[in-house]
């Protein structure tokens, strides 16, 4: 199965003049204690594109996503095998500084999780923990991050208000702004819209589309329409394995694997 999952020609890899890969995952396995959650994953993640991960509950999408910035390190007994190359460097190599990695590979979570602090402090959090920016630089970073997250106009008059006074859609965009403030290269999003209403969802999708001009984005979603409309590449996971990984329109129009077809048609119908 794994060899024809990655049909490089079809994916338009650099050999054929397509996008460059930002992350290369090679023979990656992941274990929670004795339970194996991911099997032999090999795939590229393309720079400045949106990659969607779909699949039934428990198939390992979140696990894979969290493996890309080593958030799984916080789980006791978790173990990774194989390589994840970010710009050609293995992020699981022993000399890697995990905090540095996480600054470069940011993450937005399922439930909006702004800190119970002011809007300003939320966005300023990253720059502050990473160094001691001057007040003026900090104000600029906060403004540009909020603007990039399409939130500036809504909050510019109340930056001192608690972030918890925002509605869920705004909170999620604030979390995106908080991630942008440390200038990451990759943004991982784990079902970022599942707690949002349809309007706020479209807002975030719009935003992702604009951000993909600068950032590499990987998004986990349960929403087939969202994957179809908002992503460039889609990977279908099943029981910890990557069944099919192709350009989004093709995967949805002409799935090669029976499993993929069953899953997307079941979900769409």
């Amino acid at each position: 199965m794994s060899s024809d999952v990655l049909d490089k020609r079809e994916l338009n890899t650099p050999e054929t003049g397509g996008p460059k890969s930002k992350i290369e995952v090679n023979d990656f396995n992941f274990f929670y204690g004795t339970f194996q959650a991911l099997y032999d994953l090999t795939l590229p993640i393309y720079e400045r594109h949106i990659t969607a991960l779909i699949g039934p509950s428990g198939c390992g999408k979140s696990t894979f996503l969290r493996a890309l910035n080593r958030m799984n390190d916080t789980v006791i007994g978790a173990r990774a095998e194989g390589e994840v190359l970010l710009n050609g460097q293995d992020i699981y190599a022993p000399n890697v500084d995990v905090t540095d990695l996480r600054q470069r590979v940011g993450m937005v979570f399922q439930r909006p999780n702004p800190f119970p602090q002011s809007i300003y402090d939320n966005v300023a959090f990253g720059p502050r923990v990473l160094g001691r920016p001057k007040a003026r630089d900090l104000a600029e970073i906060v403004e540009s991050s909020l603007a990039d997250a399409a939130l500036w106009d809504e909050v510019k008059d109340r930056l001192d208000a608690s972030a918890l006074t925002l509605n869920p859609g705004q909170q999620q965009r604030l979390c995106i702004a908080r991630t942008l403030a440390v200038r990451p290269e990759v943004i991982l999003m784990d079902e970022p819209c599942s707690a949002l209403d349809p309007v706020a969802t479209l807002h975030v999708e719009d935003l992702m589309r604009r951000l993909s001009a600068q950032y590499t984005i990987v998004i986990v979603t349960h929403n087939m329409q969202q994957a179809a409309r908002a992503s460039d590449y889609t990977g279908f996971f099943w029981l910890g394995k990557l069944v099919e990984y192709r350009r989004t329109p093709e995967l949805f129009a002409t799935p090669k694997e029976a499993l993929t077809e069953a899953y997307i048609s079941g979900r769409q119908g």
Binding site: N69, M71, T74, T99, D100, L101, R102, Q103, G106, M107, F109, R111, N113, P114, F115, P116, Q117, F125, G126, R128, V129, L130, C175, R178, T179, V182
Partner: peptide, 23 residues
């Protein structure tokens, strides 16, 4: 969720405790 958010930005354990959890 607060700890996760902080760690995912690149804060250290100690920064997470001191700047997020304690407040």
């Amino acid at each position: 969720e607060y700890r996760d958010a902080s760690l995912a930005i690149g804060a250290t354990e100690w920064q997470t405790i001191w700047r997020v959890v304690v407040p």
